[in-house]
Design a protein around this nucleic acid. Sequence first.
RNA 1: AGGCACGUACGUCAAUGGUAGACGGCUUCCCUUACAAGGAAGAGGUUGGGGGUUCGAAUCCCUCCGUGCCUACCA
Length: 901
Amino acid sequence: MDIPKTYDPQEAEQRHYSRWEEQGCFVPETNRDPDAPIYSIVIPPPNVTGSLHMGHALQHTLMDVLSRHKRMCGHRVLWLTGTDHAGISTQLMVSRELKKEGLTRHDLGRAKFIERVWQWKHESGGQITRQMRREGASVDWSRERFTMDEGLSRAVREVFVRLYEEGLIYRGDRIVNWCPNDQTVLSDLEVEKTPQAGKLYYLQYPLKGSNGEGRRITVATTRPETMLGDTAVAVNPEDERYRELVGATLVLPLTGREIPVVADEFVDPAFGTGAVKVTPAHDPADYELGQRHSLPQIVVIDQFARMTEEAGPDFFGLDRYKARELVVERFEELGLLEKVVDYEFSISKCERCKTVIEPLISTQWFCRMDELRGRALQLLSDEKLPRFVPDVPYKRVYAEWLENLRDWTLSRQLWWGHQIPAWYTKDGRVIVARSEEEARVAAGTDELTQDPDVLDTWFSSALWPFSTLGWPDETSDLKTFYPTSVLVTARDIIFLWVSRMVMMGMKFIGETPFGDVFVTGTIFDKHGQRMSKTKGNGVDPLEVFDKYGVDATRLTLASIGSTDTRWNENQVESFRNFANKIWNAARFCLMNAEGAKVGEGFDADRAGWALHDRWIVSRLNRAAESVGRSLAEYDFYAAVQTLYHFFWDDLCDWYIELTKADVTAVEASPERDRARSRLLTVLEQALRLLHPFMPYITEELWQRLPGVGRELLHEAYREAEPTIMLTAYPEGSIELIDERAEWEMQAIIDLISRVRNIRSELNVKPSQPIEIMVVSADERLGALFFAGASVDQIRRLTRAEKFRRVDSLAQVPRASARAVLAGGAEVAVPLEGLIDFAQERERLGREREKLQREAAKLEAQLANPQFSERAPAEKVKEVRDRLNDIAQRVTALAQMVEALK
RNA sequence: AGGCACGUACGUCAAUGGUAGACGGCUUCCCUUACAAGGAAGAGGUUGGGGGUUCGAAUCCCUCCGUGCCUACCA
């Protein structure tokens, strides 16, 4: 037998993926059933610059489990993959490369730079998709997409033009989040707020006309440098302190500019001095306040976060922080700096480069969200779509975010991305068109310049579920696979991505892009910290694959599902051991496979089968049924648990041991062949059940089983090459669940366990043979234990030399260890010389006490009239039955203690 | 500042209002011809504290303590 004792995952992992891919197992066309149900998933496209991290591995595992499961159920499955062009990340990555050559992108110019990015993409982009192959992800590579493919770009332009024509996209001046480092505008979602220890400066502004000793208003600010652009001071209209000053004029220090005092509800009288300086050009709140009061906007900070000429000759050209120091200094000189206090506030930073955002007024493209948001909310309230799993809290979070949505800033001042399809004529007209040609025709001139900006990366991502399927053409893929079945994603992009896909899907297809949204948990490091590149605390999935194998890692990830969890390598190790267990169980079967075939004699009349055979069939069907149900509910954890315990406990610990004698019989016989075939068949079914979770080991073993071939494939794949991937997933049939067999088997398992317990507690060496005596008042139990096959099995598994029935405990030697079984049977193991009577009495006494405590609890429950009146009759009966059983055992134990005296 | 989650064995996590479990770790015994990455047995919990609802609470409600996450224009 040339099967190694230990499973080597890497060897199996190398062997199967490329074969599956070459044989077309991943493409939906392999399914030849024209009526096959459709199942489709689009992958959240990872950044083309990215490499695989645990979050991806988690998502991919779950998507692959679902895809493989549905495929085996005969569905026409499409799992579509691809990557995102990731505007800023990619541009930065290539810019960094250029820097090493002493160049900037401006040295190259736009066209050359973009060429260079494409070159980078072809040479080293998409590393992550190659890593996906290692994961075993059954994605359809023939439909792989990139957000800047011609087809997807066409969809982007089409959507932009249509939204523009409907007035949903507009160009305008607004205050935006500007990153002075990346030199681009950012959407609200790309800005992160971090707490910061700073200072609050109290500045005094004198009233006009009051010379020298006149009144002043004190304002508090964290950004003194912006005072140079102040165009008002605002107070709350209800604030008594300032009521008479509303409408008064102040002289703005350092500039001499006259500014009004205005009243606005926005001002909180309780904060600071109750008077707010208003800088409409450099603060989003002030901007809105400025709009309400028609205040001028004075730009004093430029796109590089330096002071402009408007800031005055003393400040012009200074960095914003230098300007801050200088302003404070000047105020101090003028005696207008009231005080400076320490103050913690949150500051907005660029999510990528962590530079402090500078709010600036600039001309950008925006998308109105009212209509789009309305349809998404309607879909949620009317049709309950998409269905979030888990629904708490995501459904609510999603709905609330939509309700408070503001216009989406679409333009980005980058080169890498979808250039905005808008052209300008010399006389200032704006032409939005699908192509430059179309724009020329519309403009009536060839002298056009295209808007230099590109679209937010998430604009193309928002179209992903339909642009990847060929939209705006009415392709058959689009008709077949849209809407997709489920979206599996991390929670941090519910707003950035999920909501926008819903809005765009509703707008352009009129249907939700996906039925379900499964939100995965987050994997933290062992200290509960989020894994991140900058912290360097990430665990590399590929290293885990190398160490424990892909299948073991997948089981760990599948168990995580939607739970937030701290990464725990023990768990992977445990599943690695499980993989090895599977390997060795199969190894045992294969070592004893001569004369046997998968499926042979399995359809025969089961009434004549041995108890353990009927039992394992029942357990198998119960497990299959349960796994199917769990997967339908996205309860991956439960599915894994069921499979683990079915395989290890039921199949390995009990079934193989029970059938071992038959299977390993020295002489060939029809009985031996039957036993072997049954074992092989059960194993083969178990491998199928495990396959979606553990694709590699199951395929590796399945291929070695005698009797596997095309005939085992699901009908829909009958013409394919034999592979476990395309066999039918065992559904589990309720009719094959045999309650009686399970009850009987459980009684035997209990007997064996009790005897083993005695051996262990009394330190009886495994090598020492024992004798077992059983007293059973219950005829059914007695018959069961002493049925032909059972006797040998019980003896074998307890290492008992003799196993016999006695009429009463009185016939048992006094020096026996005893135990009570469920159902009232009693078991005794004569152990002359090994029994310390006092100790044994104590052991039994302890057990009796335990049972008595439980009985007391149950009795109290039954004694409570409220319980029997109000609890369901079924529960009451359950308690009564349990109490009866316990009482019986307590009595038996008492007698046993007596016998030892 | 608001909002929302979470707190269960030493660790990581389970448990439709009805006997609190799994895996790892730990203890004892066993290299029994599928597997020592294994087998057998075992210890370990007033479910963060306190109150309430209920015949019955880890689960529902209130409150306190602790921990995360999200949202927000308090200068």
